[in-house]
Amino acid sequence: MLANLLSKKNLVLDGAMGTRLQKAGLPAGHLPDEWNISHPNLVYNIIHSYVEAGSDIVQTNTFGSNRLILKKYGLEGKINEINRQAVKIAREALDSSTLLCGSLGPVGDFIEPYGDLTKKEVQDVVKEQVEILLSEGIEIFNLETFISSVESIAATETILELGGEVISSFTFEPRDDGRFTTLMGETPEKIAHIFQSYPIAVLGANCGTGMKQMIKIAGVYRSYYSGYLLCKPNAGIPKVQGNQVLYTETPEDFAKGTKELLNLNINLIGGCCGTTEKHIRAIAEVVHQS
């Protein structure tokens, strides 16, 4: 479905969820996904704002809705309710032309050789959440903000076996030598090489950097990867002032950056932390005119 659409045109993804919920009053240390139950209207309003801004695809508020993360908040018994409610909320926010994608983050603990979790344990955790979302009609899954290709591959293989489409997106940070790597030291070149042989719909990068640095990452990705690519930058590198976290890149910055990403043949563009519907509207105005 997604790959077929991207063969015809570039698409716009949505923007931030966590930082938007924080601005709406989500307390520090509270799992954003729980608000699918306790504050569904606020989750709906955020997703609907992205639909109105021009997103072709929006995501469920399920980034941390797997069993391991939910257990850390004492919510593992609500895994079905949180995931199913997330789909219900998002579906109500859609219009007839908007696709719905399931957001899946890392499972919450490190996989071997970096930690104690085995590949089988990761796949069991992913399978449990994906099967719930599949039963609610979700077909596209965005594995976002991953820092390890080992964990992403485990999740990717699970989703593909269950019949879903995969976006595999990683977080890169700048290093002193000018390169960008994940927390595990993997470069965009390495990630591109690894996933060239996997039948994923889209390879991507999100979070970690603002638009200016994301353009550099995109250039490296495109030099080594021939398939469809996603970029979902933050609204700049966050700065702390007092008790506030500020993101300084504007919608105008995103409009300019989107043009550069399109010149690099980036196919799916959205926003991560700090972005709002205004950033997404700026992206959409450029993408939909291209």
Rank of each mutant, 00 (worst) to 15 (best):
N36K: 01
G77D: 14
V43F: 07
P40W: 03
Y73M: 07
L75Y: 13
G137E: 00
D109V: 14
Y50K: 15
G64D: 11
I132R: 07
L68Y: 08
F141H: 04
G54A: 13
E131K: 14
L100C: 13
S97H: 14
I111D: 11
F63Y: 15
I132S: 10
A53E: 13
E144A: 02
Y73P: 06
L68P: 00
Q59A: 11
S38A: 02
L100R: 15
V51W: 01
L70T: 14
I132P: 01
G105H: 00
V122P: 03
L133Y: 09
G137V: 00
S97K: 11
R91I: 00
I140S: 02
D116E: 12
T60W: 02
Y73I: 09
V43C: 08
V122A: 11
P27S: 10
G115Y: 05
A93F: 08
G54Q: 08
L94T: 07
S65D: 13
L134H: 06
G77Q: 13
L143D: 03
K119A: 10
S103L: 00
N41Y: 02
E144M: 04
G105S: 01
E34V: 08
L134D: 02
P32I: 02
G108A: 07
D124A: 07
L70H: 11
P32R: 03
F110K: 03
D116M: 12
K88M: 08
N83A: 13
H30D: 03
E52I: 14
I138V: 12
S49H: 12
I47N: 03
S38T: 15
P32E: 04
S65F: 10
V122D: 06
V107C: 14
A86W: 06
I111A: 06
Q129D: 06
I82V: 11
V125K: 02
L133K: 07
E128H: 05
F110I: 08
I89T: 00
E34N: 01
Q59S: 12
Y73R: 08
S135F: 08
R84Q: 13
S65K: 12
R91M: 01
E92K: 14
S103M: 00
A93P: 12
S55N: 14
E128G: 10
L99W: 11
G115Q: 11
V58R: 01
V58G: 04
I132H: 05
V126G: 07
G54T: 05
N66K: 14
I47T: 14
L70V: 15
A90F: 08
E139M: 06
L100K: 05
V58N: 08
R67Q: 14
V107G: 10
Q85M: 15
K127D: 05
G64A: 15
Q129R: 08
K72D: 12
V122T: 03
T98K: 06
Y114T: 06
G29K: 02
R84G: 03
I37H: 10
D95F: 07
A53F: 11
V126R: 06
E34I: 05
H30V: 10
E131S: 09
K72H: 07
D95L: 07
V125I: 12
V87A: 02
L42R: 04
L134Q: 10
L134P: 05
D56W: 15
K88F: 11
I69V: 15
Q85Y: 06
Q59G: 05
L75F: 14
K120G: 04
D33H: 09
T118E: 01
T118I: 00
